[in-house]
């Protein structure tokens, strides 16, 4: 098991009047190479959870294991853990700071104590992965377009050779094509590089199209954990906790109710298309 959380609880402002329980007795196992979509309304505990995964927050109670080792045990190297588990915060482009794109991406591996040459190699590799062409290496990161900036920021995390990549709303504020580019990149990182992906997203459509496993948080607890198809079949319950299913799910249920024999578990446009065409053909034969 790559990441394991055992009876993990976290309370903000412990022993103060502002005590707020954020996570309550979470048990979660994540295998290497999974593509997980993490959903839940604001304040449901998602962000608190992901910060536990690379040791930015110490649990109030319970344990966090990485590759079988308790990360809060005496002598565990948390700095090293953070080079394995990379966290891309919301609007990561706000964290760009260097004078050139290349230098910015080299900063992470530089902190790992690698040689200048190795850092450059890592940065070059990461920038190629995210699709930033070489002729942009020497420009200021602030002169890149919105989508490019975000990809450069992701490269900064990838350059540390991470095994797990956690992204908090990586598509927020991007245009539709930019959203698709980032998501395609993330899928590629998983498929080609075997990097475990944990994608925090408010877009049910994105989770439906890209994730293989979906975990839904509600009031600090796991409300659902399964394939997106399985989770979205509970769309009525999802609505009660401030979420929804993709538009497609509603269309399919409505069609079924109106007598067209479609597959109500379809959650993406291609799936829905196939099922509707089949149902129509059947009806006409």
């Amino acid at each position: 098991m790559q990441i394991e959380l055992k009876d993990l609880s976290y309370t903000y402002g412990l022993h103060t009047v502002y005590e707020v329980p954020a996570l309550k007795g979470i048990n979660l196992k994540i295998r290497a190479g999974e593509f997980i979509g993490l959903a839940g309304h604001t304040g449901s505990g998602k962000s608190t959870l992901i910060q536990h995964m690379n040791g930015l927050i110490r649990p109030t109670s319970g344990q966090v294991f990485y590759e079988g080792k308790d990360i809060w045990e005496e002598g565990y190297d948390l700095r090293e853990l953070r080079t394995h588990v990379g966290l891309v915060f919301q609007y990561p482009e706000n964290q760009l700071f260097e004078t050139t794109v290349l230098k910015d991406v080299m900063f992470g591996p530089g902190n790992q104590g690698l040689s200048e040459e190795e850092c450059r190699k890592r940065a070059d590799y990461a920038l190629k992965l995210v699709g930033i062409p070489e002729d942009l290496y020497e420009t200021s990161p602030f002169d890149l377009s919105g989508g490019q900036k975000r990809r450069a920021a992701i490269a900064g995390v990838l350059a540390m050779n991470v095994e797990v990549l956690i992204l908090d709303e990586p598509t927020a504020g991007l245009d539709p094509a930019g959203r698709e580019e980032i998501l395609t990149l993330i899928r590629h990182l998983r498929d080609q590089q075997g990097i475990t992906i944990i994608l925090v997203s408010h877009s049910m459509e994105d989770v439906a199209a890209y994730a293989q496993r979906m975990i839904v948080f509600h009031e600090g607890e796991i409300a659902f954990d399964g394939t997106p198809k399985m989770v979205f079949s509970h769309f009525r319950e999802l609505e009660k906790i401030g979420l929804a299913a993709p538009e497609i799910t509603y269309i399919m249920h409505e069609l079924k109710e109106r007598g067209l024999d479609v597959d109500v578990s379809a959650i993406t446009v291609p799936e829905a298309k196939r099922s509707i065409l089949m149902a129509l053909a059947q009806k006409n034969s």
């Binding site: 094509a177 446009v269 291609p270 065409l277």
Partner: peptide, 20 residues
């Protein structure tokens, strides 16, 4: 122009492409 359409519109478009 790097934009998209609502999901219902996209599905309708896809179905039309297939002869609906």
């Amino acid at each position: 122009y790097r934009l998209s359409v609502p999901q219902a519109t996209e599905l309708a478009y896809e179905l039309r492409q297939s002869g609906c």
